[in-house]
Write a protein that binds this DNA or RNA. Structure first.
Lengths: 290, 290
DNA sequence: CGTAAGGTTGAGTTATATCAAGTGGTGTGG
DNA sequence: CCACACCACTTGATATAACTCAACCTTACG
């Protein structure tokens, strides 16, 4: 029952006491503070939705999206703040409007595994199947989220069956991404995992920005984040990023990643030819190298 | 357009020529022969569905399930046969009625990563979102599958919105399982991965068999399968299974796994207390140890 | 200017992979 | 019924990728 009830959820308040028992002091360095309160003073209208073309509501735009305006809310997370914790009851579907999130789990010994990095347009939480969160979700940057109550589903699916179909599509995309992570973690060397991570993030960020970013993308993950994402240590990540830099494949200044030679990153990953071709195409390497 | 059209798909035939280009000779030892033809001579009626309680159609039983009888088909796979290959067009939703499947991808160098092991009641393929298979799927044992044409979705979702909800639930379950695999691959040692794999399979098989199997379950995976599932080598899997056997935690005779001490398997995994408790409960270890 | 957090580098350790040889079943054809 | 081949599994010796620990550097920031 976290996060109150909707509509009128323009102010969400969560008791700190509802935090899960596993939030032990030893883990404080990885688990962030949980979302306490958030204002919707600047709620974006659906007609101005920045992720209209890839969200759950895509099939509704532009005709009936005004109906959703009455149902949805909006919250903002500061970097390092947890949206929810493992074990929390999930009664919202969150859509990232702007910013980056990641999902993670913690082990008894305090180690962290980052499960996914999520970008604008991605959905988080649950909609068709309310339940208990099997992982925590934390903001990497300042993040704006559209929130849709889980219990709206009966009504919405009945009126807009296309939304159910779209939801299935989005979950399917997530499943594919998860399988790719499994393959990378299971069979890639550290160098391959990092190359894959970089090229994948590069693709996903670029396909979301209409404007040409050049070959540079923002890179808000620390090396420790990358290590926890790829099942490595931050020391080892540092060494390998150093190699890639020395080889002239990437360049890092500040919180920005410059991918100088995406082609070689793809090579490193040892994908089968189709996958490699698909990625090369996504990066814009099909013929004309940028 | 593999697998013909429906209804009347009581005989499915797929040209061997439609095989994906990546099926190179060097991979023949892992990729299996693809499903060529399958007879539906013994199509199971929905009213006798062995997985009625956990399938996509669960919300329809028992009232309107007879309507589905007209739409669905049934096929059987022999062990080692591929249901489809990476790159295939997916136009069916498969529900496992009986047997075991696994999904996998192959790398350029011929190595294999098994993504998931799927049990009766699990769904494979696509329904709400037709598309291209991102992985191959192979039968581990003789497997019976219920098949539902992807293009039935428009009709079915409109008439039975609960099916869309159920589909979302099933995809959500798969997503949770994928995330657990990511966490295991990323942060578990070989011993922990194997312990987790064993206890997880043990739980899932037992929760599907009403009858008491004792503490023994069928174990159709070879050590090489397990290695490819957990990102290890079969040699290392062999050694660790040897340890677990020597420690009296498991026993293996033939193709059967005896879990003598599930509690210690759970301990090895280093789960957080809630997860551990949930698994202990699922195994029947909450208090009364069997 | 001091502190903290993230990043870098080196030396030594360990877990897992690799290579190689050998065992034990099981099915098959003679 | 036996000989053979094949496959999964076992075991040992060695190599190596990645981890651990520790020191130090750099940058951002109050």
């Amino acid at each position: 029952m976290a996060y109150g009830t909707l509509p009128n959820a323009d102010r969400l308040k969560v008791s700190a006491l509802s935090g899960p028992a596993h939030f032990l002091p030893s883990r404080a360095h990885v688990a962030g503070p949980r979302l306490e309160a958030a204002d919707c003073k600047t709620k974006t209208s659906c007609s101005a939705c920045p992720v209209a073309s890839r969200s759950l509501c895509t099939p509704l735009h532009a005709d009936s999206c005004s109906e959703l305006d009455e149902v949805h809310g909006e919250i903002e997370l500061a970097p390092g703040v947890d949206l929810f914790w493992e074990g929390d009851e999930l009664s919202w579907l969150y859509t990232i409007l702007d910013g980056l999130l990641f999902s993670y789990t913690l082990f008894e010994d305090g180690r962290r595994q980052i499960l996914q990095v999520m970008l604008p347009g991605d959905i988080v939480g649950s909609w068709l199947s309310p339940g208990i969160a099997h992982c925590a979700v934390q903001a990497l940057t300042t993040t704006r989220l559209c929130i849709l109550p889980c219990r709206s589903r009966v009504d919405l699916v009945a009126r807009f069956p296309e939304m159910a179909v779209r939801y299935g599509e989005l979950l399917q995309e997530q499943a594919v991404r998860a399988d790719q992570r499994i393959a990378s973690l299971g069979r890639h060397s550290a160098r391959q995992r990092i190359a894959y991570f970089l090229i994948d993030l590069y693709c996903r960020v670029r396909e979301r920005s209409e404007s040409a970013l050049g070959s540079s993308i923002p890179m808000p993950l620390t090396q420790e984040h990358i290590a926890d994402l790829l099942g490595l240590t931050s020391v080892h990540v540092c060494r390998i990023l150093g190699n890639l830099r020395a080889e002239g494949i990437i360049r890092l200044h500040g919180r920005n990643l410059h991918v100088l030679d995406p082609d070689r990153l793809v090579d490193i990953c040892d994908f089968d030819c189709e996958t490699a071709a698909a990625i090369r195409k996504a990066v814009g390497l099909d013929g004309a190298v940028g």
